[in-house]
Nucleic acid binder design. Sequence first.
RNA 1: GGUCCCAUCGUCUAGUGGUUAAGGACACUGGCCUCUCACGCCAGAAACACGAGUUCAAAUCUCGUUGGGACUACCA
Length: 463
Amino acid sequence: MVKTRFAPSPTGYLHIGGARTALFNWLFARHMKGSFVLRIEDTDLERSKDEYVKDIIDGLTWLGIDWDEPPYFQRERMDIYRNYALNLIEKGFAYRCYCTQEEIDRKRKVALKEGKKPHYDRTCRERPFEKTDKPFVIRFKTPLTGEVTFSDIVRGTITFQCEELDDLIILRSDLTPTYNFTVVIDDMLMGITHVIRGDDHINNTPRQILIYHAFGYAPPQFAHVPLIHGKDRTRLSKRHGATSLLEYKHEGFLPEALMNYLSRLGWAHGDQEIFSREELIEKFDLHNVGTSAAIFDMDKLLWLNSHYMKTLPPEVIAQRLVPFIEAMGFSCNETKKLISIVETLKARAKTLKEMAQMAAFFFSAPVSYEKEAQEKFLTPETKTILKDFLIEFKSLSSLHEEEQKRLVERLTHKYNKKVVEIVQPIRVALSGKTVTPGIFEVINILGREEVEKRIEKAIQSIP
RNA sequence: GGUCCCAUCGUCUAGUGGUUAAGGACACUGGCCUCUCACGCCAGAAACACGAGUUCAAAUCUCGUUGGGACUACCA
């Protein structure tokens, strides 16, 4: 059975790139009816933070990614790694190295200067065991010759010469294990069948394969997916805008849109652009994953988001809109009204945040009018029209669109004006703005009483 | 520097040697619709990095060049 994992290190927020890697792992597992696990690689005691663990878990959850076993924390498994490292020494695949860091740094600088590889010179590799209190690290005994080849699912065959590889440290002097060792131990112990990760790990793969060999264990399948780059075509990092995936949530993006967008970054299914979660699971395939890095495109994300704003049930959008409305200091306990607002705004707002801003005037009367709107549409001339409108509006038997339309038409004839010249003053009076949803919809949502109040107020504001 | 990876419109991509004057989508431009703004609809501009080779035939295969990226830690 297929088993995949997402193995982030909590040394930073879950960003778009990590989320995409997680998504691919999750989609592949779900597609293959296998399982997916989350493993927090927090062996870097210095830089790992609980705050980031929370961000990762919350971010994935928001996206709609779930895992089949409780999350693993490498920090809780230190003994396991130590034992396996010791075991490797016994088997002759690793050795204690007593060289000091200063020594090694010095030698590396010299080697670099002479144009040689900055590798550890393997001083301790064949040193006979001696009892000493000196601190040591454990290094893996990389074969001096030969090559390592593996078949990557997305890239095909990749080969490395062993002589290019270093005797990497697998256990630090403080007895904590290093990345290239823990991944192998955990992937092995957890029975991971497919390792799907960013292509920044291609260079690590041969080292890891060698460790698998040392344990006599067949390596999993590897699938290295291209990285996501920022506009400057370098690896995505903090300086490319939104740091955390949750930042997108706070900016009013829908998880459906993010998932759809992320899935299409490096993967395609013919010409299809819109995928539901179920469709993604059904159609996702590692063989259709591309090989070149993609640049994050906010415009396309916005387009997808606006698509889901329009197509998700209004009740769902309304529910998700609530926190944004409340953040502006309004309370929205009238569900029916809120849904009407969503209906009228869903084709106009690209994000929930934007929708909330557009909806503000439904919750409180304008305290002031946009300057230009006021100058242009709240004039002595339109004052007359507004007064007339108010009288007729009060006598309307219902707020049906047809009836409102007739009212406006009567006014256009009476004053010999275009529709827009009648509607805009009303719009400004009701919203303070020149841009709103259709005027009849606005009137309907506001309701008789509120409309009358606001028109009245506008009339009074005109000298 | 060394090793490895990558290269189709501005961006995401379809394309797996042959009706492809290279298709779709976002963005962009123009038009239609229209009470403002959106939405929607129609149209348009826009790409196979370069050079050899293989082949009857190459965006597709090979090599080289150029360009970009990643890795090269007692980070992951």
